[in-house]
């Protein structure tokens, strides 16, 4: 992936975190992504995408230790930062410019 663009899967990962309240760990993300995409999502793929996004400084992560309420083990929580949000907006604007005034003819039938 180029420095500016984000892959489709990466966008999905970022958007999922935002949908889950801006900070999330892998388990709810996989569940959410499977529901939204209607496909099986590999937890490993999600994890690696998250680490890659972290390298690009689009998300930040922290370890959350065992808590009384639920988890017995540590979890890594990811949070979309400002740069990540901006990059997502940029992707959206770019895609919108491509879609502007365009009709593939396929949309009607499926919707």
């Amino acid at each position: 992936m180029t420095r500016h663009g984000l892959g489709e899967f990466e966008q999905q990962v970022l958007l999922t975190i935002l949908r889950l309240g801006g900070e999330a760990y892998s388990v709810p993300m996989v569940v959410e992504m499977e529901q939204r995409s209607g496909r099986d999502v590999s937890q490993a793929a999600v994890y690696i995408a998250l680490r890659r996004l972290e390298d690009k400084k689009l998300v930040a992560s922290r370890m959350v230790g065992p808590t009384a309420t639920g988890n017995a083990k540590e979890r890594r929580y990811f949070k979309v930062n400002a740069a990540g949000r901006e990059r997502l907006e940029e992707c959206r604007r770019t895609m919108n410019r491509f879609w502007e005034g365009l009709d593939t003819g396929a949309e009607e039938g499926t919707r």
């Binding site: 937890q43 994890y47 083990k73």
Partner: peptide
Amino acid sequence: EREAAATLGELQELHAH
């Protein structure tokens, strides 16, 4: 060690779900 344990923990949690 630590990251691996956390990752496997999350994997097990997903399995439970």
